[in-house]
Simulated assay, not measured.
Amino acid sequence: MHYKTTKAKSFALSVSAVALTAGIFLSATAPVRAGETLTIFSAVSTTNAMNEIVAAYKKKVGKIRVSFGATSTLAKQIENGAPADIFLSADNKWMDRLEKKKLIINDTRIPVVANSLALVAPKGSDFTIKVEKGMKLTEALKGKRLAVGDTDHTAVGLYFKDSAKYLGIWKSVEPTLAKANSVRAGLAMVERGEVGAGVVFKTSGLVSKKVTIIGEFPQESHGPITYPIAQIITSKNPDVRKFYDFLKTDEAKAAFAKYGFIPIIK
């Protein structure tokens, strides 16, 4: 009798486990219905413009949330399975990496806006220099450091590294770098006067009242600074298309232009 009771209980537990597993599987693979919250991962340099765009989308179209961060950080989170529907990157290299790993839907990858690279200094400082080949940037810093995003990971840092090599100043300026984990973090160093100058995206310099744009790095010194967008391979949200369409509206383009971006989405 004891054996039969134990066997019955075991069978019941097995059935429950199978049912639970099936329920979890069905829940995980169930299609996302239109109207569910759309999740965007967006490069931190787009914060001001995207906050306006997301607010307008939420008011006129549907549910949406956005998470900002360094492009490299967001890309790594996507690689680790973070739940996102759309990725707006400040760097094509990181999007290329996700594409090679088959983590985005290739047909949805398109450029949205363009930007440029700028040299900034604390407002009111006497820092000055002309951005050109062979410029004496280290001397102009007068012993102070140059803030920039990490030159091995962040979008702004990777662009600057290419530009500095093109201008022939990389070896001399590399030891002076104060590397930040994002363009915003680097900008904050300049705003607080912790460094002599910094390299940021022009759009970031334009929105700050605490820095002065000293000059822009030549476009030919680095790859095109375009921001690609793509749908994440695991996303099943049908409202992705609605957001793409909204980015093409005059309202969204005006929001980008307001903060110095050049809308190029078609």
Rank of each mutant, 00 (worst) to 15 (best):
T29L: 10
F243R: 08
F201P: 02
E52G: 10
T249E: 06
S208H: 07
F201C: 03
G62I: 05
A17C: 10
F25M: 07
V156S: 15
V148D: 11
Y244E: 03
F68L: 09
V156F: 02
A8F: 04
A22Y: 09
T47I: 14
E194W: 06
E79W: 00
V18C: 11
L137E: 07
F217G: 07
G69Q: 11
P238A: 04
V113T: 13
P263L: 06
N51M: 14
D150Y: 12
G205I: 06
I225P: 06
P228T: 11
A22S: 14
P122M: 10
M189Y: 14
K123D: 04
N48E: 11
H2S: 12
K144F: 03
E174N: 14
T71P: 06
Y227M: 14
S42V: 08
A17D: 02
I229C: 09
T203S: 15
V32L: 09
T154M: 11
E251L: 02
N115G: 13
A178R: 04
I86H: 09
S72D: 11
T21Q: 01
E174K: 15
K60Y: 00
S72G: 05
P263G: 06
P218R: 01
F87H: 12
T29D: 12
K171S: 15
L98H: 02
R109N: 14
S10W: 05
K59R: 14
G143S: 14
V195S: 02
I53N: 11
L119S: 09
S14R: 05
N237M: 08
F201V: 03
V113Q: 02
T46A: 08
N181E: 14
L74R: 02
K63F: 00
I233K: 15
R109L: 10
A82H: 01
I169D: 11
S27A: 07
E216C: 00
G196D: 13
K144H: 13
K60S: 13
A43Q: 11
Q231E: 12
G186T: 12
V240N: 12
L158A: 02
V195M: 05
I53C: 08
T138R: 13
K59H: 08
P31E: 13
G168R: 08
R192G: 01
L88S: 04
K7Q: 12
V199S: 13
V32C: 03
T46C: 09
T6G: 01
L187G: 10
V61W: 01
